[in-house]
Simulated scan of single mutants.
Amino acid sequence: MEQDSNKKNNNSTLPIALGVGLLLSLGFNVYQFVDNKQSIETLNNSVKELSTVSSEKSQLEFDYKNLQDEFEQLKSSIVDNDGLLSNKEHNISIQQQEIDKILNDANASKADLAKAESMIKSLKSEIATYKSEIIRLEKENAILVKNNTLLTTERDSIQTNLNTERTERIAEREIATKKEEELSTTLSISNHKIQPLKVRNNGKEVTKDRAKKVDKIRVSFDIDRNSRAQSGQKEIYVSIRKPNGQIGKFGGADSGLLKLHSGDEVAYSDKVNVNYQNGAGQTVTFDWEDAAFEPGTYKIDIYQNGFKISQADVVLR
């Protein structure tokens, strides 16, 4: 009877044990399922975070690369750098080194990237300031170049004027010296005489003042001594102007135009060649004959070496 009772109890306990075991197994599986799900979610979040970090890093690297290219182009465009730009370039270089350190770190965190992003914004602002400074300096340099060009042009103009004036002064001195020398070597005359003459049948010459009775006019003068005039042939030009203003010309005369040192030209009636001897005086005489002399004043000018050296006149009634 007792054995039956124990057997009955054993049979009733077995289902309970089986049920508890089943519940425990089920609970473990549920726990394991929940734990795996949480692990998967954590993994997915980690993957998403890594993807986000990678994307942010790529964007930062892209923006940073553009800034670097812009900075290099700006530096290459500078013709004449100065101390101010060099200081700015030094500051930009320090910022680049710090940004490079973060972006080159394969394990850079989101916080690191946020710091790099802030630094890139600061670098962008610094490069913008650098660009503005370059533009300002270029404008100032353009003004300086323009001013220097004007100053150079003005200086060259002044120098050219000075050179021109110096050349003109030298030329004037040379001309003055030459003129003085020519003037000092020019012959002078004295005892300049003009005689209206009547030639009688016997050949005797007598002085007359009536035009109808005058056969010729004799011109005579003495050449004074001049120690500076060299010996040799000297050309003396004689201009005889009639009362009507015309230049008198006569047979056998060598008439023409003479250019003076003043630049003017005068007509002359005859040219006389004189063999001048330095330091010695001599008398020159020549006659002017005409078919018919008119009443009035006859003016006689004498030229030598481009200068007028004497003038005289005679009046015929």
Rank of each mutant, 00 (worst) to 15 (best):
residue 23 L to P: 04
residue 90 H to W: 07
residue 84 L to N: 13
residue 78 I to S: 11
residue 35 D to Y: 12
residue 65 K to F: 13
residue 84 L to T: 13
residue 21 G to E: 01
residue 64 Y to A: 02
residue 68 Q to M: 09
residue 33 F to G: 03
residue 71 F to N: 12
residue 29 N to Q: 10
residue 50 L to T: 00
residue 51 S to G: 04
residue 19 G to W: 12
residue 17 A to Y: 08
residue 60 L to H: 04
residue 82 D to E: 05
residue 72 E to R: 11
residue 28 F to Y: 15
residue 48 K to I: 05
residue 75 K to M: 12
residue 31 Y to T: 05
residue 60 L to Q: 08
residue 57 K to P: 00
residue 41 E to I: 06
residue 23 L to A: 13
residue 47 V to H: 02
residue 26 L to E: 06
residue 54 S to N: 02
residue 57 K to F: 01
residue 11 N to R: 07
residue 25 S to V: 02
residue 68 Q to R: 11
residue 10 N to P: 01
residue 59 Q to A: 02
residue 84 L to R: 05
residue 41 E to W: 08
residue 47 V to G: 00
residue 69 D to V: 11
residue 54 S to F: 01
residue 12 S to V: 06
residue 51 S to P: 02
residue 49 E to Y: 07
residue 18 L to G: 07
residue 70 E to L: 14
residue 37 K to E: 12
residue 84 L to K: 05
residue 66 N to D: 13
residue 42 T to D: 10
residue 30 V to P: 05
residue 73 Q to M: 10
residue 13 T to P: 03
residue 37 K to Q: 15
residue 72 E to T: 13
residue 24 L to Y: 06
residue 32 Q to F: 13
residue 44 N to I: 10
residue 70 E to D: 10
residue 90 H to T: 13
residue 68 Q to I: 15
residue 35 D to C: 06
residue 80 D to K: 11
residue 75 K to T: 09
residue 24 L to H: 02
residue 70 E to Q: 13
residue 74 L to P: 04
residue 72 E to W: 11
residue 81 N to A: 15
residue 42 T to P: 03
residue 23 L to I: 14
residue 25 S to C: 03
residue 48 K to E: 08
residue 56 E to C: 00
residue 30 V to C: 04
residue 11 N to G: 06
residue 84 L to S: 14
residue 23 L to T: 11
residue 50 L to F: 04
residue 40 I to E: 13
residue 64 Y to N: 03
residue 13 T to M: 14
residue 27 G to K: 04
residue 74 L to S: 10
residue 42 T to Y: 13
residue 58 S to P: 00
residue 41 E to N: 05
residue 40 I to T: 14
residue 39 S to L: 04
residue 37 K to M: 09
residue 88 K to M: 15
residue 46 S to Q: 06
residue 65 K to C: 04
residue 79 V to A: 14
residue 26 L to I: 07
residue 70 E to K: 15
residue 81 N to S: 15
residue 21 G to C: 05
residue 66 N to Q: 14
residue 71 F to K: 09
residue 19 G to K: 12
residue 90 H to N: 08
residue 74 L to N: 11
residue 73 Q to K: 09
residue 76 S to E: 04
residue 33 F to W: 11
residue 65 K to W: 09
residue 41 E to Q: 10
residue 37 K to Y: 10
